[in-house]
Design a protein around this nucleic acid. Structure first.
Lengths: 218, 218
DNA sequence: AAATAAAATTAGTCAAGACTAATTTTATTT
DNA sequence: AAATAAAATTAGTCTTGACTAATTTTATTT
């Protein structure tokens, strides 16, 4: 199997690949992981040798079929552990990501499937991200953010793009969670700030960065 | 906190310390971990610097108060995860040790306590080993083995000293688990073989090595 | 006590995976 | 197109935690 580091790179590449249909460059990976680009180049070589990715200067990094499969399994484990930590151990929204980050690397052939069953085959993790099934298939995640909504529009929070505790704690303070209904009252042209109404409540202003981190259904 | 390797050494030293009141030498640690003695010497230096152990050629390796505390926590986590894997995820006796070996290293301040609560504060793990409490205290494990019993004596299996799957599978085949009642019919002087009766059943012969791996209450 | 065996230690090596600094390649401006 | 900036890459270093081989220390025999 793969080392801890290889798994983290795989997962990172997978995430970048999902986020945008954009070219995945060494620099992008380096930024995402907080590593040095030179280190990334080393790992690209290693993962290429293991046939988990292909790298081409024009096309950037691409996951091979095997790489996709392996990355999906890591994501599956991560999201299942998040559900476990929240539902069974009573952690809060903002605490689970970092712990799941460690648990996702536990290696055992049947662990994910047993955990999945134990949890009742959940569809989504606590951040609203779909959990890949044992066969690798998963529901599509919304790709529209609150910032994409036009003024006056109504929506429902489907997921969050950011899992840092600072962001999640802010959401909690605003009383926003998965499923919360939000109306976008106004967009401030100057800096993209958003005036919103949470569950029909009073008007509040949030930043454009905030808006881009909230995935919505309409 | 400690690295994976440091934690494994700590746990190993803790186990050797519990097993016998004997002097813990670099060679003993090396054998126990399957490492080279030279590597052990390096790690002894490192753990000494971190004030987790003291090393003296006469006395061997000893855990400091902090070392004991840290080692106990690792053991606590290991045994709690074993209970989880067996009771909640439906693994068998012989499958859980290796997985728990990975899970015990998950670092989070409240994880062990939450898991403990979730599992209903179990006293013993599936191999009959007592689970250290949050305060570090734990029940004493029996130190008498089946091989120590005298011919004719009755006992109850309290725990197993060996957690390899080959041993556990053999136990399962013999229909022995924690709590099983055994009578020692006869000891064969030639090689220490034991003739036993399991739950009052027919006579069976097992090796002395087997007898030494089964901890009993009388 | 001397000889031998075993254990401990030192010195040096290696691989993984990170880094920095320097260089080359590619993109973007002017 | 030349100049500049950014990205990618190479080369070399560092740390962790293993290793082997050689040496020293300690224990055990004879």
């Amino acid at each position: 199997m793969h080392t801890l580091s290889e798994e983290n790179y795989l997962k990172c590449i997978y995430r970048l690949w999902q986020d945008k249909g954009q070219k995945i460059t060494p620099t992008a990976i380096a930024e995402s992981l907080g590593n040095n680009p030179a280190s990334v180049v080393d790992m690209i070589r290693k993962l290429t040798e293991k046939q988990l990715i292909n790298y081409d200067k024009k096309k950037g990094v691409e996951l091979t079929a095997q790489g996709q499969k392996d990355a999906t399994l890591i994501v599956r484990r991560h999201r299942l552990w998040e559900v476990f930590l929240l539902e069974k151990l009573g952690y809060h929204w903002d605490e689970i990501h970092d712990i799941a980050e460690e648990m996702e690397h536990i290696k055992d052939a049947t662990l994910a499937d047993r955990l999945d069953k134990f949890l009742g085959f959940p569809e989504y993790d606590p951040h609203g991200d779909p959990i890949p099934k044992a066969n690798g298939k998963m529901a599509k995640r919304s790709s529209i953010t609150l910032a994409d909504l036009k003024a006056g529009g109504h929506c429902r929070v489907a997921a969050v793009k950011d899992t840092t505790s600072s962001f999640l704690q802010y959401l909690q303070k605003l009383d926003i969670s998965i499923g919360t209904k939000i109306q976008l009252i106004e967009k401030i042209p100057f800096d993209g700030s958003l005036v919103i109404s949470i569950d029909g409540g009073e008007h509040k202003t949030v930043s454009s960065k905030f808006g881009e981190s909230v995935l919505i259904d309409m």
